[in-house]
Nucleic acid binder design. Structure first.
Length: 470
DNA sequence: GCTGGCTGCCC
DNA sequence: ATTCTGC
DNA sequence: GCAGAATGGGCAGCCAGC
């Protein structure tokens, strides 16, 4: 329970460089309300605006210098180095993006920070903690899932007995140091300071600097593309592009500032793959989506076994109009708007066949029950007749206990399938039949390529699918 | 003691 | 996290 | 342009129930 006052009071931070209370905290009733940084009290991290093309990003920087930094796929970490009362023993606290204290979960990071920072100086750093495999030369970045499997408590014991993943923190900013706030300083200065011995002594595989390229002048576009490719090879999600100079490059807590732009690789034309999936079921939407099907369960089609294997649910990317059309198409009628408030299913349930008090069964294109060739651990409220194809885009695939795509073909993952992270609907694919949908084998190949960083396997020529040609 | 559901948090 | 909608 | 709503995948932890 951290008092997250930065969120409650998103003040304009009239930060001064006098933030340092020379004599100690006694006279600081302020809880962050005044915008005064306090080591040990988390401030809301600065956020980035998302853009989906190099062109749009370059446009926002308008020729000014910026940093094209790797966007690591881990957890945001605001690292505080707190001085003890006597100025002696230091303590490290680590806060999540939402200002939760996650020090216990990453006590190894905390210790590494202690070793990497000079005595007698308090500090606040910003960075990303990632699961890594240190047996590789430069520590190999591991998927987010590895990081998520870390135990939450201080005990560090994992129920399954598997050892927790090693982690490394990639630092990219310094907000405060030695009693001085740095948030008003230009990013270039903050970064340079962070990279000086006065602030930190990095330790490979434990405490590192976020990788980034300074880009300015001609050839910016080529430089950004190159940075993006490097980031992808490294196993990152894309780029964080940050304005380097001037007051606009200050650190603005809790703001989704224009001076930070994120470019995720799965949005960039020519890099992202999309999938052609089949809607096989749905639930009833809540709130403003009451009366519509939402979300919708999607599946890949395996012609070898004639099965539809679920890959994800999707609810993003539909306009209200599409919802109306979709619902009418499958239900064959307008659904009665549900009550505003949804209630707990209680213990009722009893498998997905009952459909409690629903009237019409096989109306429209609904099926009376889940067909045996729909392979999923989901229990949809209604099952669709698999009859169309939608183009879906997402980030990577994860091993799933719920979605059974390619289940049985994945080495070392008995009983698990593949699921798509961050799925969103792009458009219908009226020119494709369900038999032409993306197959589990294709998805398995994409999965293998994504973390099988072992082999760069450049091409492996992949079937297209996608195309949002306009 | 193991399992399933639910909560809370990460992205 | 993402997307669309409404102010 | 921004806030709000409705949800995406997935994990650890905790508690109820068998």
């Amino acid at each position: 329970m951290c008092p997250n006052l930065d969120i409650v009071v998103p003040k304009l931070l009239e930060e001064r460089s006098w933030a340092a209370p020379a004599g100690g905290g006694a006279a600081l009733p302020d809880l962050g309300l005044g915008g005064v940084l306090r080591v040990g009290m988390p401030l809301s991290p600065m956020l980035a605006k998302m853009q989906s093309s190099y062109g749009a990003m370059l446009e926002t920087f308008k020729g000014r210098a910026f940093l094209a930094e790797h966007k690591y796929d881990g957890m945001r970490a605001q690292v505080h180095v707190v001085l003890g009362a006597a100025g002696g023993r230091r303590e490290v606290r680590i806060f999540s993006r939402n200002s939760e204290d996650i020090t216990d979960r990453f006590s190894d990071v905390a210790e590494a920070i202690l070793e990497s920072t000079p005595a007698g100086k308090d500090a606040i750093f910003d960075g990303e903690v990632c699961a890594v495999d240190r047996s590789k030369a430069p520590a190999q970045l591991l998927p987010f899932q590895s990081l998520a499997r870390r135990p939450k408590g201080p005990t560090g014991r994992s129920a399954t007995g598997e050892r927790a993943a090693e982690v490394c923190v990639y630092l990219f900013d310094c907000l405060y140091h030695g009693g001085e706030s740095m948030v008003k300083a230009p990013y270039r200065a903050r970064r340079e300071f962070l990279r000086s011995a006065a602030a930190l002594s990095p330790r490979p595989g434990f405490v590192e600097y976020a990788e980034g390229d300074v880009i300015e002048g001609d050839g910016a576009e080529e430089a950004v593309e190159a940075a993006m490719l490097r980031s992808i090879e490294r196993g990152c999600e894309g780029l964080m592009c940050k304005l380097l100079d001037g007051p606009a490059s200050a650190y603005e807590p809790s703001k989704r500032s224009d001076s930070w732009v994120k470019l995720k690789k799965d949005y960039i034309d020519g890099i992202a793959d999309s999938l052609d999936l089949v809607p096989i079921g749905a639930w009833y939407g809540n709130g403003r989506k009451a009366g519509w099907y939402s979300p919708v369960l999607l599946a890949a089609y395996d012609p070898e076994t004639d099965t539809f294997q679920s890959v994800c649910r999707v609810m993003s990317g539909f306009t209200d109009e599409m919802y109306t059309k979709l619902t009418l198409f499958y239900a064959g009628k307008v659904l009665a708007g549900k009550q505003k408030k949804r209630r707990k299913p209680e213990a009722a349930e009893g498998a997905g066949s009952g459909d409690s008090g629903d009237k019409g069964e096989p109306t429209g294109r609904l099926l009376p029950r889940k067909p045996p060739n729909y392979i999923t651990n989901e229990s949809c409220r209604v099952w669709f007749d698999a009859c169309e194809v939608w183009t879906i885009r997402g980030a990577e695939f994860s091993l799933s206990p719920t979605h059974m795509c390619a289940q049985g073909r994945i080495a070392c993952a008995a009983g698990r399938g593949l699921a798509l992270r961050f799925p969103r609907f792009l458009h219908e694919r009226p020119d494709k039949t369900t038999a032409e949908a993306t197959t589990p084998a294709q998805i398995l190949e994409l999965y293998t390529k994504q973390h099988g960083a072992e082999k760069p396997a450049a091409a492996a020529g992949y079937d297209d699918d996608d195309d949002d040609i306009l």
